[in-house]
Design a protein around this nucleic acid. Structure first.
Lengths: 148, 148
DNA sequence: TGTAATCCTTCCAATCATGGGAAGGTCAAG
DNA sequence: CTTGACCTTCCCATGATTGGAAGGATTACA
């Protein structure tokens, strides 16, 4: 299988496959006489594993750890779980950050008439010397996202 | 005022001030004879405006638009509001993506005992040929985030 | 068999916002 | 006058990904 076919079969672009090889996430493949990379079904399986981990937002470093645990039949599941929960924490922190931005911004936009006149609370707020008002109150709807 | 003082007063690092100047987000400043950049209170005010916009996650391009609207006394507030709401949409889309990842991952982690044995549903799922199960059901808790 | 289209290769560059650091000039305090 | 803290420019790195150029290989079709 050529790299293009492996890409189509795995959902990882040929560009990324070469990149993953270059950084050592996947081993160097066999080549044909003319230098073409050759992939097996097993390689494609690994690539699909990587793509799934990537779709869950894992970093390449974490994916490397996950792949190595996947290959290791003696692994402890707690090591896998630790990586996963670590990543959940990162995701949730990021989510809270973005929610805070969105909430503040929606609040500001709600108070802007959005017509053809120049008066605009959004700009006023950005230009203000006061600390940015951390959205009215951390809406209870988001409470379920807290880690507690 | 030197760049370091402007940085301290605005909360934008000296590095970033130079960068913003280089990309044209802020105009080139006056220099002393020896080449030091000189900043006025007005410049610092602009920098603070930029920092606030940045803290709300606006891109540099959007910030440039916001600054230009801020400067424009003839602006229409709807132009500002449009930028803000556009950005809210981007933020909310990103939030939903991250929530989907976190939710899927938490679900997987919940089913992993996390002990010293090798069996691990997280790895099994990543290695599976099935489509990633988009978390059990788009939990109603997140429904309020939908754009409708 | 010729040729054109479609692959593949490597290498380099760009993204986005930010930080690190080197080499060297400037300034203020002691 | 020296020392330390500032400033200058320039280059590099991040992370994951895409784009493209130049050139070789393979394939398909007439």
């Amino acid at each position: 299988m050529n790299i293009g076919q492996a890409a189509a079969a795995s959902g990882v672009s040929a560009k990324m496959i070469r990149y993953y090889e270059s950084i050592g996430l996947i081993p160097k493949t066999v080549r044909t006489e003319s230098g073409y990379r050759v992939y097996s079904d097993h390689d494609v399986h690994t690539l699909r594993f990587i793509r799934r981990a990537r779709d869950l937002g894992f970093s390449v470093d974490q994916i490397a750890d996950l792949v190595s645990l996947w290959r290791d039949r003696e692994r402890a599941s707690k090591d896998v779980k630790a990586i996963a929960l670590d990543h959940v924490n990162v995701l949730e922190r990021k989510i809270r950050e973005l929610q805070e931005m969105a909430s503040t911004l929606k609040h500001l936009a709600d108070h802007c008439c959005g017509d053809s006149r120049p008066h605009c609370p959004i700009l006023e707020e950005l230009a203000s010397e006061e600390p940015l008002p951390v959205h009215p109150k951390p809406d209870a709807r988001f409470g379920t996202l807290r880690k507690t």
